[in-house]
């Protein structure tokens, strides 16, 4: 098992190297001149040159790349010019925020989409099936920033049910001691229920926005694999042997339909982690997505490179995890190198 994991990680290496090279090149061809931007509003050409030298941007591309890789090997991702902090520190503080939001969105998506999918499969072709499809599809049909803004307008501005869209906590709550970085979990560990409540309230709208986006793929996959399972031999046998429909659906069909759903979940998660970029912007969520977008707009290379690399590593790890999980659900599946 361990050697399989190791071998599998080894095959991910070329991917990571590819990501590093592509990101490096992509950030260098961005039109913005970092030096000019950070030299300030009154910069003379000499002042810009000075900043350039300070940032090491006056060197040739290969030289810059070598020094970037050298630093990378030491775990140094450079410093962000727009936050003034090291990228490692920024990502460490921001990644949990994104992960918490994404997981919340995913959980919400599962809770709604899996029953929808099952229902649609069981009542295949009926109006319930069509309704499920329309609902799930409607969720992905609006740009996330727009649905996010609509939710804020409705539930905060109009109705006043949701708390102000000001990030992970309202202004007068203090963040719990960081253990996992997830406010919900940390506040529970600290038995600080006031903070838990505050963090939970802040999380609802962005998680719903994101969850809506996760509906369609999960529902679609659940429906498809349920249909396949329902028409399979063993389910027919189970039905024939007089088991209740409920038992057949839950015990036999659903368990077998889970496998492809889990794969989908993994992909939905990594997709959401990337897609929450815009949600974070709308809800002033201090995650890595909004961080990367701002950095990209400002031609601030280091955070973009750090972000992409982090996401790529996460992606590789996640796929590995899914493969392992696959093995657990279905022992016949072996991790392939």
């Amino acid at each position: 098992m361990l050697s399989q994991i190791a071998r599998r990680l080894l095959t991910a290496l070329p991917t990571l190297i590819g990501v590093i090279i592509v990101t490096f090149l992509l950030t260098r061809v961005l039109p913005g001149d970092t030096a000019a931007y950070f030299a300030g509003p009154a910069a003379t050409p000499q002042a810009i040159e000075e900043v350039k030298k300070k940032l090491g941007l006056d060197r040739s591309l290969p030289v810059q790349f070598v020094s970037y890789v050298e630093a990378l090997a030491k775990g140094d991702l450079g410093a962000s010019l727009s936050t003034g902090q090291t990228v490692v520190k920024d990502i460490r503080t921001r990644l949990p925020a994104s992960a918490e939001l994404t997981l919340a969105g995913l959980v919400l998506g599962i809770v709604v989409a899996v029953p929808l999918g099952i229902l649609a499969a069981v009542r295949q072709g009926s109006w319930i099936d069509h309704l499920c499809r329309v609902v799930a599809t409607a969720g992905v049909s609006l740009p996330v920033f727009f649905s996010g803004l609509l939710l804020v307008y409705l539930f905060y501005y109009r109705l006043g049910w949701a708390p102000p869209p000001m990030g992970r906590l309202d202004v007068f709550s203090t963040a719990p001691n960081s253990i996992t970085g997830f406010y919900l979990i940390d506040s529970l560990i600290a038995r600080d229920f006031e903070t838990f409540r505050a963090a939970f309230a802040q999380l609802i709208l962005p998680a719903v926005t994101l969850g809506m986006f996760a509906l369609a793929p999960i529902a679609r996959m659940t429906r498809a694999s349920m249909l396949a399972a329902l028409s399979s031999e063993f389910v027919r046998t189970a039905k024939a042997s007089g088991l209740s429909t409920r038992a057949v659906i839950v015990t036999y069909a659903f368990r077998n339909a889970m496998l492809p759903v889990v794969t989908t979940l993994g992909m939905v998660f990594s997709f959401l982690l990337g897609a929450n970029v815009l949600v974070e912007k709308v809800f002033a969520w201090p995650g890595i997505g909004s961080y990367a977008v701002d950095a990209l707009i400002k031609s601030d290379f280091a955070p973009v490179q750090g972000f992409v690399l982090t996401m790529a590593i996460l992606y590789v790890m996640l796929n590995l995890l899914i493969d392992i999980l696959y093995g657990v659900i279905d022992p016949r599946v072996r991790i392939e190198a």
Binding site: P14, T15, L16, G18, V19, V22, T23, L26, T27, V29, L30, P31, F271, L273, G274, A275, V277, L278, G289, A292, V293, L296, I297, V304, F307, V308, M311, A312, Y315, V316
Partner: peptide, 24 residues
């Protein structure tokens, strides 16, 4: 296969942003 893997490992929206920002 490698090319596809590499692209998949990118956060796709940010990749699209990067391409558009870089190319105009």
């Amino acid at each position: 296969g490698r090319t596809a893997d590499t692209i998949m490992a990118f956060p796709l929206f940010v990749l699209a942003m990067g391409i558009v920002a870089a190319l105009g």
